[in-house]
Write a protein that binds this DNA or RNA. Structure first.
Length: 153
DNA sequence: GCCAACGTTGGC
DNA sequence: GCCAACGTTGGC
């Protein structure tokens, strides 16, 4: 299977690219959307590369790159009553929610704002420009490489 | 802070 | 299975 490419969103107030740079790697917990879950549970593979996107930021932008280091497994926060991500419908038999682990690769010297994605030839069709609420989404290899080139300045 | 878009829930 | 109500996301 060829390497795939993804875009994952995080609010920088919650978990930013700087947090990932500091931690080195992290588990992508808290996703509570079925389409996003399915991508993590079924399709993401070790070595896949990820555009790290800051949502609810000023401006919203792709700010760096990460890499998948562990494939889909149950999101334990769904079973933790203390967690803000607790889901009473999750169980041992049916974990309901899944996550992957990612590691820091690079932070862009020139973050690529959403407005630039919309204006750049070859990127107009990126899902982030239309399906703005999908927090884990596939991108094409071409899209990934265009964004990386812009981000590196 | 506002609000449009959209996903989920639950009554019927 | 429909659909109205509701909650959340996320750009602005």
């Amino acid at each position: 299977m060829a390497k795939r490419y993804w875009l994952m969103k995080s609010e920088p107030n919650t978990y930013s690219i700087d947090d990932l740079a500091r931690d080195g790697r992290t588990c992508w917990d808290g996703v509570r959307n079925y389409q996003a879950r399915n991508f993590m549970r079924d399709d993401m593979r070790i070595g896949d590369e990820v555009l790290f996107y800051h949502s609810n930021a000023n401006p919203p932008a792709v700010v760096g790159i990460a890499r998948v280091v562990r494939e889909g497994y149950p999101d334990h926060t769904a079973r933790d009553p203390e967690s803000r991500y607790f889901d009473p419908k999750a169980s041992d038999e049916d974990p309901r929610w899944y996550m992957v682990d990612i590691e820091f690769v690079e932070a862009f010297p020139e973050p690529v704002p959403l407005a630039t994605l919309r204006e750049t030839p070859g990127l107009e069709k990126m899902l982030v420009t239309t399906k703005s609420r999908l927090s884990v989404q596939p991108v094409t290899k071409d899209e990934f490489e265009i964004v990386r080139r812009l981000g590196r300045g």
